[in-house]
Design a protein around this nucleic acid. Structure first.
Length: 207
DNA sequence: TGTCCGATTGGT
DNA sequence: CCAATCGGACAG
């Protein structure tokens, strides 16, 4: 369907290190214009992954395989991977070609198309607690937004139907930084505060 | 080819 | 706390 005023955040925005992009992605709006309908949500939680030095990153050690290939390409494309054999996680490739960095989008505040999101998630759209469960985790938001690896791996987020649009500007005082979730295997990188959140947002992952 | 395990989630 | 579930990474 047609858009009114929404425009895509330009590739230049993503051509920076993962920490800067993860922080600045807070407040922007992830939009997916899919055949089934239009959904969108404001980013409230994102994590930075910096390969090849970052032991938590899939690109650690310069690991370049069919899965991580897109991380080595130009910024502004989707890196999507299957986790635990069940869920797809959505990342934006950042920095520049040859430097495999990415930002994992972990939670959104649902905006447009919440009924469609609930349907995709198999939740009762009328239940009072549903809104909170729609996009409060990386595996949940891909389902709610209709994002999957078959359709979106490597997708150009600056030209296609899946993109980020400008949204709220989040002041530094409203940004929290904590260690990333579930990266206990990452040695000294485990405790780095590379998870950025909108402070006190009710839409974050993990209750 | 075989084995191990995960950037998660939802139920016990 | 724990099972679900399967592709990727790597050893042999």
């Amino acid at each position: 369907m047609s858009e009114n005023g929404n425009h895509r955040i330009p590739r230049q925005f993503f051509a920076r290190n993962a920490l800067a992009v993860a922080r600045d992605l807070l407040g922007t709006v992830l939009v997916h214009e899919s055949p089934e309908g239009h959904t969108s949500g404001t980013v409230v939680e994102a994590e930075a992954y910096r390969g090849p030095d970052d032991q938590a990153a899939h690109s650690f050690g310069g690991r370049r395989t069919a899965r991580t290939e897109v991380m080595f390409g130009p910024p502004g494309h989707a890196y999507i991977y299957l986790i635990y054999g069940m869920y797809d996680c959505f990342n934006v490739v950042v920095r520049s070609e040859g430097l495999p960095e990415a930002v994992l989008v972990r939670a959104l505040k649902p905006m447009e198309g919440q009924a469609l999101m609930a349907a995709r998630r198999g939740l009762d759209p009328a239940a009072p607690r549903t809104a909170r469960q729609l996009c409060s985790g990386p595996g949940k938001l891909t389902i709610a937004m209709g994002i999957n690896r078959a359709m979106h791996y490597g997708a150009d987020l600056c030209t296609g139907s899946l993109y980020f649009a400008p949204g709220d500007t989040i002041d530094d005082t409203d940004v929290g930084a904590t260690p990333r979730i579930n990266v206990d295997y990452a040695g000294q990188w485990r405790d780095l505060p590379w998870r950025f959140v909108v402070r006190d947002s009710p839409w974050l992952s993990r209750r």
